[in-house]
């Protein structure tokens, strides 16, 4: 989806700073790690922004701050003039299956965001269908689902938590990386359809540059806690200025130990 470039940004991230303590394995002492050192981002409604970077660059931390799961140390995330509400921004985790309580059934897992939002449970089956899950899955335990089905369920839950009536943002934190290629392709189609249907904006945190290039309207490169490059995919990949981005392209050819 391409929008006129002078449209007002929908979601703005300003000077986001976040650090946290990490226990160093050898000495047992805690270290302060500065994950984000002043990140600035803009996102248009209905647009897909991909954030790429080497592992450890702070991508997940950024995702969590935008989603409101971890408060930043300083800086702000603004949507429509104020902090985003739960019904406006949702995130799908890196391991979609881990975001599902194994003791819950599919129906209970889907009912959770619906009930928290105060809506009626009757819409559950609709929502299952929306992500291509069969009705028969409703009574199964979430732990019994396949990887692809778990991803779909996580997506359905996020959608259920979002407000249908306003433009929303969905953050995908490397959510597709753990899936088989064929399942991945199905999910991508689903996401594209949903974007067209509901005008969702996506923030795609990715390792996989080809995926980012394929889906995104714009790509931002996160390196050492800052956005160092930004632009349309074909521009960036053909003419990478930043040396680290060059390394990144090279690195994606190597085996990624995170996945």
């Amino acid at each position: 989806m391409v929008l006129p470039t002078n449209a007002a940004p929908f979601l703005t991230v300003r000077k986001l700073v976040k650090s946290f303590r990490r226990r160093s394995g050898l000495t047992g002492r805690t270290q302060e790690v500065q994950a984000l050192r002043g990140v600035d981002l803009e996102l248009q409604a209905g647009q897909t922004l991909a954030i790429v970077g080497a592992s450890g660059a702070g991508k997940s931390t950024l995702a969590r701050c935008i989603a409101g799961l971890d408060p930043p140390d300083s800086g702000e995330v603004v949507l429509g003039g104020r902090k985003p509400a739960h019904r406006e921004v949702q995130m799908i985790f890196q391991d979609p299956g881990a975001s599902l309580n194994p003791r819950f059934t599919v129906e209970e897992a889907l009912a959770e965001p619906i009930e928290i939002r105060g809506n009626a449970r009757s819409v559950i089956l609709d929502r299952l269908a929306q992500v291509g899950l069969p009705e028969t899955a409703a009574s199964r335990l979430t732990s019994q689902l396949s990887g692809g089905q778990k991803a779909r369920l996580a997506l359905a839950r996020a959608l259920a938590a979002l407000d249908d009536r306003v433009p929303c943002v969905l953050i995908l934190d490397e959510s597709l990386a753990s899936l088989d290629l064929s399942v991945q392709a199905q999910m991508i189609n689903l996401l594209v359809d949903l974007q067209q249907l509901r005008g969702l904006a996506y923030i795609l945190i990715a390792h996989d540059l080809s995926l980012a290039a394929h889906l995104a309207d714009e790509v931002a490169v996160l390196h050492a806690g800052r956005i160092v490059e930004r632009g349309a995919p074909h521009q960036l990949f053909q003419k990478p200025d930043h040396p680290h981005f060059q390394e990144l392209i090279a690195a994606t050819l190597a085996w990624d130990e995170d996945v």
């Binding site: 739960h86 019904r87 985790f93 881990a98 599902l100 309580n101 003791r103 928290i116 939002r117």
Partner: peptide, 25 residues
């Protein structure tokens, strides 16, 4: 610390909900 607790937080769940539905079992 489980992801599903964070996911519920993301939906806007109250502490009570998190404790009762996810921690208690």
């Amino acid at each position: 610390e489980r992801d599903y607790v964070y996911a519920s937080r993301g939906f806007g769940a109250s502490s009570w909900h998190l404790i009762a539905k996810h921690c208690l079992p």
